[in-house]
Structure formats: structure tokens, C-alpha cells
């Protein structure tokens, strides 16, 4: 499993997760999750962009 925001390896046991278009995504941190939820398409199309700044 890969965090779609920062590209880090994450396990399915991560509590930071969400579902988008019927597929589960897992994150390394709440920051990545929040960033993804704001604009999922850009990460899915453009790939991971590293840790988001600011929260």
C-alpha cells in the first residue's frame, strides 16, 4: 500500500484512511489524509507529491 499523497509505504492497519470512488486509500498521517480529501483527483492523476506543508 502506498500513501497517495507522500508516496510512503503504509499498512492497511493505518487508522488514517478514506474511501474515494469505491476504493480505500491509506495514509501515513492525518495531514496526508486531509490533503487527499481536499483534492483527491490531483493526487490520483499526478501521483504523490511528498509531505504536505502546513495544516
Amino acid at each position: 500500500m502506498m500513501d497517495p499523497v507522500c508516496g510512503m509505504e503504509v499498512k492497511e492497519t493505518s487508522t488514517y484512511r478514506t474511501m474515494y470512488k469505491g476504493k480505500m486509500y491509506y495514509f501515513c498521517s492525518p495531514h496526508c489524509k486531509t490533503a487527499f480529501e481536499k483534492d483527491p483527483e490531483s493526487y490520483l492523476k499526478g501521483g504523490p507529491r511528498g509531505m504536505p506543508h502546513g495544516h
Binding site: R17, T18, M19, M24, K33
Partner: peptide, 18 residues
């Protein structure tokens, strides 16, 4: 069965339920 922020998902009788 999977819990996430804001909801739960699982296959119930083979159907996707969110």
C-alpha cells in the same frame, strides 16, 4: 468490514455497502 472517518464499508451478502 472497514471503519474510517465518517463512515463504514463492507460487503454485505456480496453487495458493496457504504
Amino acid at each position: 468490514f472497514t471503519e474510517m472517518d465518517g463512515g463504514v464499508y463492507g460487503k454485505v451478502d456480496g453487495q458493496d455497502v457504504l
